[in-house]
Nucleic acid binder design. Sequence first.
DNA 1: CTCGTACTAGTACACACGTACAACTCCGAG
DNA 2: CTCGGAGTTGTACGTGTGTACTAGTACGAG
Lengths: 181, 181
Amino acid sequence: MSGRRDPEGRRRAIVEAACALIPEVGVGGLTHRLVAARAGVPLGATTYYFKTLDDLSEAALEHIARSSAEDLRAWAEALRGSADVAATVAALTEEYLADRPRALAEMELYLAAVHRPELRPLARAWFDGLVDVLGGHAGPVAAKAAAHLVDGALLHALSNERPLDTEGLATALRALLRPAA
Amino acid sequence: MSGRRDPEGRRRAIVEAACALIPEVGVGGLTHRLVAARAGVPLGATTYYFKTLDDLSEAALEHIARSSAEDLRAWAEALRGSADVAATVAALTEEYLADRPRALAEMELYLAAVHRPELRPLARAWFDGLVDVLGGHAGPVAAKAAAHLVDGALLHALSNERPLDTEGLATALRALLRPAA
DNA sequence: CTCGTACTAGTACACACGTACAACTCCGAG
DNA sequence: CTCGGAGTTGTACGTGTGTACTAGTACGAG
């Protein structure tokens, strides 16, 4: 696989450790030492690959945002062949929530973006992508509203550590996506 | 007003300083020294009134949650005499967002509750109250969905520092609250 | 008046932090 | 082979942290 020397692998290991840590301790709770320990590298390694702690957290959040946005490809495909768009979106949301840490990290990203404008594009990636996907099956206003609804449902499911009410979400999405207006 | 001694006033000043600080630095960024400086009291005062930093942040978050929940009384009243419930809720949401720091603090509360279960009742106060208020004008499923929608819209408005799309929100709420289904 | 208790205020301590850095090791270009 | 730069590692430094603690102050009960 890799000899003792493997800069790229090391960088990735550090980023992945940070990604795993963010849902546990929050973006603000991230620490060079914490990440280094989790990644199994000495302290010096994290400061070598990332000049500053903000750089490190940004790299991790970018990784997370990319991962979430990539999921949306599967959403688009599932919706293409779906008879009941609302039910499918609800089911996909439930699936998305199954990877709780990543969903949590996405929420952390939203809040981190409030005080770090450079993170806003990352924070918008998931939402904009979702609106895009939904836009194929509803008007722009309904798509945006549906995305808000999904994120609101996710937020509360995460915050209360409760399973998603998939049926209720589907019902609501059906109402939102109804062509009438 | 108050002589040099005023324990209750001091406690309140500390809590209010913490409330003002949370939207700025986040719950995790709160510090005894930061709060003390903002409140204009010596460091010893914050540790005297709150045995631990978590106690302090919890008191602040409780204050915020109470303040938000109290707003809902006005929501209920405004809705009682409203012909267009959806538009009224959208307008009230916009109003709520006008106090950006408090809305932000509420979101901080949501995320803080993830890792501090003792905060969950506080985090649920706003949401449950909102569902309650909306429940007077729609079925329970629609009310919950509408509350999710409102919170999702708030989250993104806060995260992107953008004004609320009040009209779009009203349209979506109208679709959600339609009695059909 | 007087005395104990609630409160005040400043300081101290041990610790974790971000970052800087110097010494060391490896490896590929010449 | 040699040598320079990239990668590695442990340590050091200054700062800020939560919390504990001591000494002092005001004030209401007796």
